[in-house]
Design a protein around this nucleic acid. Structure first.
Lengths: 157, 157
DNA sequence: GCGGCAATACTCGGATAACAACTGTCCGAGTAAGTAAGG
DNA sequence: CCTTACTTACTCGGACAGTTGTTATCCGAGTATTGCCGC
């Protein structure tokens, strides 16, 4: 079980977009984090398709958050990039082979699958509890200031 | 992120071994669940290397639980088959690229990595809370009886 | 009848291919800005 | 000076290879059983 590295990229980029408050092109995002631009594009596409980012073409275009950072959870980003499919898929092998359970013995879901589903839900709940703005607030102040100078909207007097 | 299907196989086999109480060869396990024997062998090897099963060669040999079923958790089986590595590996991209954070700004672990670690721990705790004998008790009585007749130790008078 | 020995069949274990998914890359379609010409 | 049309450069989006990990399989090493021979 390995999680795509694009998850880390997507989360960091989403955080930076939350800090910036204005569209940033993928070229800027890639250079900022030292990532391959072409491959990062793939993950940003996924985030856009999921409705988390909004993409605008042309000069001064780029990606921006489609919703306020307080309304985007870490789980949203993960589902967008990894897909919402459960990592464990019960293949009902209890109903196969010479020791197959009979249909009337399978009225209840497989206990093993239930355990896996509960664990997966615990994982998802833990991720759903954290929003992007909570993460932004944990960025070191000095770094946040630098990012603001570099990208921030200069609407502050 | 996809979980190896060997996880389901390993768990079902471990449950059956807990029910049987005596060594079962991989051929019997494979036929009982309709699984490819050669590939199942790979996962049983992993469980053996992890110290969960004990393998004996020769006639009337096979695999048996190395510990009482009450002392084996679902998490043990998962770590044995999937490896204990965390699905999320923080590559510290915050310290790379043109916007790299300085070392003195990284005294605290990356907030994103922390969230992922907490979620992973929640997942593991949920799996650690369930033992094999708890799962055995959830097997339908009729099926359990059939398995007992088929494999069970005939030490009952 | 009993003990020892060899043959046997059964078991696991590691080494070896086929497939799929993730990783990485490229070029084309579309768009907004900038520019120059005309009114 | 303002409007307008065009050129330009910049953006995203989908289509195309390379590499790692999972899936599937085979054959050899080792062992307890089983049968047989000798005592």
């Amino acid at each position: 079980m390995k999680l795509s590295e694009g998850v880390e990229w997507g989360l960091h980029c989403a955080l930076l977009l939350a800090e910036a408050g204005r569209p940033l092109p993928r070229r800027v995002l890639a250079e900022h984090y030292g990532l391959p631009e072409a491959y990062l594009a793939k993950h940003l596409q996924a985030l856009t398709r999921a409705g988390l980012l909004h993409a605008t073409s042309g000069p001064s275009g780029g990606f921006r958050l489609a919703r306020p950072a307080s309304e985007i959870t870490v789980l949203d980003v993960l589902d967008a990039i990894e897909g919402p499919a459960s990592p464990f898929v019960c293949q009902e092998i209890r109903q196969q082979g010479s020791g197959a359970a009979r249909p009337e013995e399978c009225t209840r879901p497989c206990a093993i699958a239930s355990v896996m589903v509960r664990a997966h839900q615990a994982w998802r709940e833990s991720l759903r509890a954290v929003t992007l703005d909570q993460l932004v607030n944990q960025v070191p102040p000095a770094l946040r200031r630098r990012n603001r100078v570099k990208f921030g909207t200069d609407d502050s007097p």
